[in-house]
Design a protein around this nucleic acid. Structure first.
Length: 952
RNA sequence: GCCCGAGUGGCGGAAUGGCAGACGCGGAGGAUUCAAAAUCCUUUGUUCGCAAGGACGUGUGGGUUCGAAUCCCACCUCGGGCACCA
């Protein structure tokens, strides 16, 4: 038997000419999709500007629901992609019926590496492939019946769009971070402060004493977007540098899995580190899952501690530590091989060893340093530094377990309290003085007797213990106190003595923003004769991407760390220079030849959805305030519901929050955060099959053998599960599902598979369950043989009415909580009841709310039935049915009666029965008496409305 | 190693302190059909029993409770994130 092949499940023709078949579904669906478009059904009015229609707003609360910005793939959509889109569509449609003005749109994140690589593969210009791919994706999404406002469907590659991406870049470029006010401000205000003398430069130079070039350099050093020579991630395999966030833990590109090398290069950076604290603090304002918040906090990696200065013969060495309370236990220093003082520290006797060690460390990639050798290596420099708490001379070592990129690139080693230092000290025979006495439990846990002789310790001790040996003339930490208490004692002492200060460091680095590729937004920047960047005037935006036939990047050996970036835009000689008059007469300028990373366009797209046709501003402030403004004092504002996969936990979500905060600081938006509520939907997984060469075979061609094994073309293959996609050869196209079952069935199936936030395996053979459900629904309304409408005006019976109203209550709550799978189960139960109860015809009082409840999930079928019920308009804005509270409570209650927790009988009593009545009835029940077997009940628990439990 | 999340029938899942397995797939039996597909009806956790009915059952072991899939502790397995970050 073949598995997962749509052809095997094709709904066949049959003699019932009025049955709900795939063909009928298709007719209905296409008809309603055309009508929605013609009637502009899903266009959401703005409060101002070209999309304004204030009559449509009257009294409606707003809802902005958003899907993560999709990349229009050349392979088209598979059924895994629309899972989130269907969920947001159902929710949006439900809220429309609850009276909301709902903004739901989707656009295209079409710049970037994948689009360029696809173009290279197909030998077609990315402009062409991108447009084709977008057209195909629009077609596929339209066929799903999503209630999107088409007017708002932007693409990052549209000149009207990237003009504003460049404009925002200039806002960032023309801003600086005022740490006193804790917000970004225009660079012009900085200039004014420096000129007036209200602010002085950090290095103490006087502003009037600087020449014009020095002044520009000083200003440039404040900008939120700046060019700097710094270690970057160079990826020859992709021909570009990458942001830290785009490099995996094992030192490879997250796209393409190519090796990445640390190299020093001059590159554009964005000062996201200025926002590190706010990016952490404002997480508290957001409705995001704890796991995503934790991932962001971890990525930013804030740790508080102290900088402590150790004097040395060649000058002070500053170390960063999170445990200044352990200073008395610092028995040596370790500096990174790249530390600037290494050369000076090295004594002639040690020169050979140090030079060799540095060379070896340098030749190893970061990957090798971090992954291959966890075994500690290092060499002594020959020099000693002075521990400020006790004046002891401690040796200074060089070791590659200390990273130049974190803290100060130098550490004080406290081997008794830090496992890495402990291992290092053990290996090189360095002293391990104890400065804390661990609790007895710690010794017991390691099976040794308590001792302050660290020679007996199996590992370092990290925690609260009794401080010992931590005394000098002016301070004592000795005695029982927590780590936090000890830190509070030592930091003021360090400050008083001028040997240290409390400080905070971050793992987060500034965002490397330039890419040496073709398919991206050009920088709106030129360089003059000084080589310093100059902004292109806003009036000249957009800086359009020049046409280029040979847009391929130079091909490098992915392992060639010494290769140099080759900028495709540099090939357009006539574009690379430009004559401009920027106020001092026409001059020739060199253009910036980098392009922006793909993240740029997705950092602000939700704002453009709000006001896509505005040619004056990136978004009208009134429109932004309406859709995204804070809803109450202290509210962050932002998108009401943002749905997407968890893979953007740090990349997109961190960058977009950063840009949004800059725009907020500059007064361009009223919301502090772009995405108020984030919901991570699960993925659709699918079986993938590998043959004996470990190569994936087309899953559609795999058959299941009677013994439960799998075969492809007669040969055995092994099954595994993975995200649906091209690389695993297990993609199922939505187009096939529309053809075999219709879009409503596909929507229903995807929503019924499981909870919205968990991943679930796709199973084409299961789709038929939802198809049968819709056939039964149709059959309830339409006579399959005659084609006549079965809805009658007679009232329904009491049991049906009660079930109907319970369903109204439950389905509404499920939609609101994004529990679409249980909402569907409730609708199926109601329909299963109807098919038995309404044999003579379906009562209108059931039919009307049933269609309304079904419509968010299956809008096409619902519209069709709604029309047959006699309505001329769409069901989209009909109020969602409200249950009658009186019908939600019943006259009688059935109590299960347990004896010692096991159900032994059932008891039906009037709802008005008192606890005592229920208890008496339970004890008197003959089945209960039989179960008691003559024993006397010790206790009888009656939970009103739930059950009775008798304890013997 | 550290931090999250999850383990329930043959399968996807429901129940978040109160009748375990809603709903769907698959299986079994039946209706329809010349036959099949499709569709419809009945049934379907395991096990003992002719039956009535009983026993067992939510990864494992313990605990709290009248009562635990649900809460607590320990462990096992799987998935995700971070990882020489001082």
């Amino acid at each position: 038997m073949s598995t997962d092949s749509p052809a095997d499940f094709r709904a066949g023709d049959d003699s019932h000419s009025h049955r709900y078949t795939a063909d009928l579904a298709q007719q209905i669906e296409l008809r309603w999709q055309d009508r929605w478009e013609a009637e502009h059904t899903f266009e959401a009015p703005n409060p101002a500007g070209p999309l304004a229609d204030t009559s449509g707003l009257a009294g409606r609360p707003k809802l902005f629901v958003l899907d993560m910005f999709p990349y229009p793939s050349g392979a088209g959509l598979h059924v895994g992609h629309p899972l989130g889109y269907i969920g947001t569509d159902v929710f949006g449609r439900f809220r429309r019926m609850k009276g909301y003005n709902v903004l739901h749109a989707i656009g295209y994140d079409a710049f970037g590496l994948p689009a360029e690589q696809y173009a290279i593969q197909t030998g077609t210009h990315p402009r062409v492939t991108t447009e084709n791919n977008i057209a195909n994706m629009r077609r596929q999404l339209r066929r799903l019946g999503l209630a999107h406002d088409q007017r708002r469907s932007v693409s990052t590659t549209d000149e009207d769009y990237y003009r504003w991406t460049q404009w925002i870049f200039l806002q960032v470029f023309n801003s600086w971070y005022d740490h006193d006010l804790d917000r970004a401000r225009p660079i012009t205000e900085l200039l004014a402060e420096l000129e007036s003398g209200r602010r002085t430069l950090p290095d103490g130079r006087a502003w009037p004493a600087l020449n014009a070039v020095e002044r520009r350099e000083a200003i440039d050093s404040y900008r939120l977007a700046y060019v700097s020579e710094a270690p970057v991630n160079w990826c020859p395999g992709l021909g570009t540098v990458l942001a830290n966030e785009e490099v995996t833990a094992d030192g490879r590109s997250d796209r393409g899995n190519f090796p990445v090398f640390k190299r020093s290069m001059r590159q554009w950076m964005m000062r996201i580190t200025a926002y590190a604290d706010r990016l952490i603090e404002d997480l508290n304002l957001l409705e995001w899952s704890d796991s995503i918040k934790t991932m962001q906090r971890n990525w930013i990696g804030r740790s508080s501690g102290a900088r402590v200065t150790f004097d040395s013969p060649v000058g002070p060495i500053t170390v960063f530590t999170t445990r200044p309370d352990t200073l008395f236990g610092a028995s040596f220093l370790v500096v990174a091989p790249e530390h600037p003082l290494v050369e000076a520290l090295t004594t002639p006797a040690q020169a050979g060893a140090v030079t060799a060690y540095r060379a070896a460390a340098n030749s190893k990639s970061d990957v090798a340093r971090q992954v291959e050798d966890r075994d500690k290596t290092g060499v002594f420099t020959g020099s000693y530094a002075t521990n400020p708490v006790n004046g002891e001379l401690v040796p200074v070592w060089v070791a590659d377990y200390v990273l130049m990129g974190y803290g100060t690139g130098a550490i004080m080693a406290v081997p008794c309290g830090d496992q890495r230092d402990f291992e290092f000290a053990r290996k090189f025979g360095l002293p391990i003085p104890a400065i804390q006495m661990p609790p007895a439990s710690w010794f017991a846990g390691h099976g040794i007797d308590p001792t302050d002789d660290t020679g007996a310790w199996p590992c370092a001790f990290d925690g609260d213990g009794t401080y010992i040996n931590s005394v000098n003339d002016s301070i004592s930490l000795d005695g029982e106190r927590t780590v936090a208490e000890a830190k509070e004692l030592i930091i003021p002492w360090l400050v008083d003595g001028g040997s240290g200060e409390g400080t905070t460091t971050y793992r987060l680095r500034d965002w490397l923003f330039a890419r040496q590729r073709y398919w991206g937004e050009p920088f709106p920047i030129v360089y003059d004769e000084t080589g310093m960047p100059v902004a292109i005037p806003e009036s000249m935006l957009p800086v359009t991407l020049p046409p280029l036939d040979n847009f391929r990047p130079a091909e490098f050996d992915p392992n060639d760390a010494s290769s140099e970036p080759d900028l495709p835009l540099g090939r357009v000689k006539e574009w690379a220079t430009i004559t401009l008059d920027l106020g001092d007469g026409p001059k020739e300028y060199r253009r910036d030849l980098n392009v922006m990373p793909q993240w740029a366009g997705s950092c602000w797209y939700e704002l453009r959805y709000l006001d896509p046709t505005n040619s004056e501003r990136f978004v009208d402030p009134e429109v932004e305030r309406y859709w995204m403004g804070p809803q109450a004092p202290g509210d962050s504002g932002g998108v009401d519901l943002y749905v997407g996969g968890v893979e953007h936990a740090v990349l997109h979500l961190l960058y977009a929050r950063f840009w949004h905060k800059v725009l907020f600081d500059l007064g361009h938006v009223s919301s502090r955060e772009p995405y108020h509520r984030l919901f991570n939907q699960g993925y659709i997984l699918a079986a993938a099959f590998k043959d004996e060469r470990e190569v994936y075979v087309d899953a559609l061609g795999v058959t299941e053998e009677p013994d439960g094994t799998f075969a492809f073309e007669g040969k055995p293959v092994a099954r595994e599960w993975g995200k649906m996609g091209k690389s695993l050869k297990n993609a199922v196209a939505p187009d096939d599902m529309y053809n075999e079952y219709g879009a409503d069935t596909l929507r229903l199936y995807e929503m019924s598979m499981g909870p919205f936030d968990t991943s679930r395996p796709w199973s084409t053979k299961d789709v038929v369950g939802m198809y049968r459900f819709l056939q039964r629904v149709w059959r309830s309304f339409v006579d399959e043989n005659a084609g006549s409408f079965r809805v009658v005006d007679a009232p329904c019976d009491d049991a049906t009415r009660r079930l109907l109203h319970r369903t109204m209550e439950g389905v509404a709550a499920d939609y609101e909580g994004l529990r679409f799978n249980t909402a569907i189960a409730k609708l199926i139960e109601l329909n299963n009841h109807i098919t038995k109860a309404a044999a003579a015809g379906l009562e209108r009082e059931v039919a009307v709310p049933f269609v309304q409840m079904l419509s968010p999930l299956c809008p096409h079928l619902a519209e069709e039935l709604w029309a047959r019920l006699g309505h001329s308009g769409s069901v989209t804005y009909e109020p969602f049915p409200l249950p009658d509270p009186a019908l939600l409570v019943s006259d009688t209650i059935e109590y299960p009666v347990q004896v010692n927790g096991k159900v032994r009988a059932r008891l039906t009593v009037p709802a008005s029965a008192s606890v005592a009545d229920v208890e008496a009835a339970a004890i008197g029940d003959e089945r209960v008496i039989a179960s008691l077997d003559g024993k006397t009940p010790k206790k009888v628990i009656v939970v009103p409305g739930r059950l009775v439990n008798i304890v013997v």
